[in-house]
Simulated assay, not measured.
Amino acid sequence: MTTEQWLRLWLATLVHLRGTTLCSYRANVETYLIPSLGGVLVRELTAGRIQAMLADLIRNGGVSGQPLRPGTLRHVHATLRAALNSAVRHGLLPANPAWRVHVPSGRRPHAVVWTTPRIAQWQATGKRPPVAVWTAGQTRTFLDHIRDHPLYPLFHLIALFGLRRGEAAGLRWCDIDLEHGLLTISRQIRQYGRHLEIGKPKSEASNRVISLDGATIALLRQYREYTAGDVDPASEEFIFTTRSGGLLTPQHLTHLFRALNDESGLPPIRLHDLRHGAGSLSLAAGNDLKTVQAMLGHSSIVLTADTYVSVLPDLACRAAEATIHHVLAAAKVTGARLRGTTAAAA
């Protein structure tokens, strides 16, 4: 059996996976694995052949001709590793050669803040950071700019509470307790191709309850009166829909946000970066990492600290001022003690 034949057979057996995961596996198989290894017999796959494939992808890039990012390379390798694990279980291989392959680790890009110098550089060169977030003032400018947009409350929730786009699109009226100011995240809308899937959130930690502030509660009350009237609080109707009442797709929200970002005149960020920014703003407001972790629905506080939370300029300035104040205060105490000791000795 060739590697191509096995990969296609393996894909056909993955009926238990989420649609988005299966779509990712299929894309990696068709785009990278079959063109590189499809003609090789499964029993002749070695760590050396797989390593050579990864080296070629690093050197020559993928179908676009652009070098693959370390994250994409890891996903391609993980897909092949999963397929060959199944081949081992079916007796086609004695061991999985993909386990003995070195894959460049790479690092997640850290979110950087759109400071004035960074904006000037972007305007001069057209180059933008992979992950960037707005300052508190820029976020306020954006929200003010879209204040009259029908989906303003949705972007408000993403910008201030870090909802994922699928979580925001999947919110129902029964998920919001306006009396007690609580928002429950228990499902999301996923999209792969043209297919939509309503299911559980990304992970167990993503099932969470978020406390809402008074302004957000008032905003959602007003939105309910305007769009749904006297809707039953236990209603499973979606809060945010298209103008015709249909489901909002994650891709539609991404395209809409990009257009609104352009209209606002603010430096560009991705819709997911609005979620990054929510973590940064919460940290800058004085909340601890554990609180931010719970709000974003992360399973690990390390992920929150290392990937999603960027330190805003005003927070960094406060930290610097606090440090120098602490050092100078300690120096004064030490100096006073030394002068007292010297005087006593005299």
Rank of each mutant, 00 (worst) to 15 (best):
R43K: 10
W10V: 01
G19N: 10
M53T: 07
G65K: 05
R49I: 07
P35Y: 13
V40M: 02
V15G: 04
R49E: 04
E44A: 07
T72G: 01
R8S: 01
R26Y: 10
T13K: 15
L14I: 12
T46C: 01
Q66L: 07
N60A: 07
G48P: 03
G38V: 09
L9K: 08
G19S: 13
G61C: 11
L57C: 13
T13A: 11
I50N: 05
G48F: 00
A12Q: 11
S24F: 11
L54Y: 08
I58G: 10
W10N: 01
L9D: 11
D56S: 12
V40Y: 03
R8I: 06
V29F: 12
R26I: 09
R49L: 09
L7Q: 03
E44Q: 08
T31K: 05
A52G: 08
C23Y: 10
L11D: 09
R43G: 02
N60D: 15
R8E: 11
V15K: 13
T31R: 07
V29W: 08
V15R: 14
L45K: 01
S36K: 15
V40S: 02
I58D: 12
T46K: 10
T20L: 04
L11R: 09
L57T: 12
S24T: 14
Q66M: 11
L11S: 03
Y25P: 00
M53G: 03
P67M: 15
L9N: 10
R26A: 02
L45S: 00
V63G: 14
R59P: 01
I34F: 01
A27P: 04
I34P: 04
N28Q: 13
T46F: 00
A47I: 07
D56C: 13
I50E: 06
V29I: 14
L14G: 01
L7H: 05
T72H: 00
M53V: 07
P70H: 06
L41R: 14
R49N: 01
V63Y: 11
E44R: 10
T13I: 12
L68K: 03
I58K: 09
L22I: 11
R59Q: 15
A12T: 08
S24Q: 14
L9F: 00
H16M: 10
R43V: 00
T13N: 13
G65N: 08
T20A: 03
L45H: 03
I34N: 03
Q51N: 13
S24C: 13
G65T: 06
L45F: 02
R26D: 12
R59S: 15
S64I: 13
L14V: 04
G19W: 11
I58C: 12
L17A: 03
E30F: 04
Q51T: 10
V29R: 06
A12W: 09
P70S: 08
L11T: 09
L7Y: 03
L17Y: 14
L68Y: 07
H16L: 09
G48V: 04
C23D: 15
T13M: 12
S36L: 12
T20H: 06
C23R: 13
